[in-house]
Simulated assay, not measured.
Amino acid sequence: MGTWRRGVVVGRRRMKKKTVCSENRHVRSMERKLRQLQKIISGGGVAGEVVDADTLFQKIAIYIFLLESRVKLLQSVYALFGPHD
């Protein structure tokens, strides 16, 4: 909590700054990760443009659905035209 010197608690202020720094670091980390996700997703937006998290997660869901659809299509094509024993 802090130590008492001349009737004033010393050390609390520093603890609060660490908490704020930690929160800021967490927010910056999350923003960086969202920007990386945005780059991965096709049509994720213009470079440097940051979209809100909800929109980005919707785009990610659509992207995953499209990837799954492509995999199913390729599996079907392989089943029809792939090597047969």
Results as ranks from 00 to 15, higher is better:
residue 39 K to F: 13
residue 56 L to K: 01
residue 24 N to D: 03
residue 8 V to Y: 11
residue 1 M to C: 03
residue 1 M to P: 07
residue 56 L to N: 01
residue 50 V to K: 14
residue 31 E to M: 02
residue 15 M to P: 02
residue 50 V to G: 02
residue 6 R to N: 14
residue 3 T to S: 07
residue 43 G to N: 15
residue 12 R to Y: 11
residue 3 T to W: 08
residue 71 V to Y: 04
residue 63 Y to G: 03
residue 36 Q to A: 11
residue 23 E to A: 14
residue 20 V to M: 14
residue 35 R to Y: 02
residue 40 I to M: 08
residue 84 H to C: 03
residue 74 L to M: 05
residue 29 S to N: 12
residue 43 G to Q: 11
residue 35 R to D: 07
residue 41 I to L: 08
residue 8 V to K: 12
residue 23 E to I: 14
residue 30 M to W: 05
residue 62 I to Y: 13
residue 32 R to A: 11
residue 29 S to E: 03
residue 75 Q to T: 03
residue 24 N to I: 00
residue 51 V to N: 06
residue 68 E to K: 13
residue 77 V to R: 07
residue 31 E to I: 05
residue 33 K to V: 05
residue 9 V to R: 15
residue 15 M to Y: 15
residue 73 L to N: 05
residue 24 N to C: 02
residue 24 N to S: 02
residue 23 E to P: 01
residue 85 D to C: 07
residue 78 Y to D: 07
residue 32 R to Y: 13
residue 52 D to Y: 03
residue 80 L to C: 05
residue 73 L to D: 01
residue 74 L to Q: 02
residue 37 L to C: 00
residue 44 G to P: 04
residue 17 K to R: 15
residue 45 G to L: 03
residue 54 D to C: 09
residue 42 S to H: 09
residue 1 M to K: 07
residue 61 A to S: 10
residue 27 V to G: 00
residue 10 V to E: 07
residue 67 L to E: 09
residue 40 I to N: 01
residue 33 K to C: 03
residue 41 I to C: 00
residue 73 L to W: 04
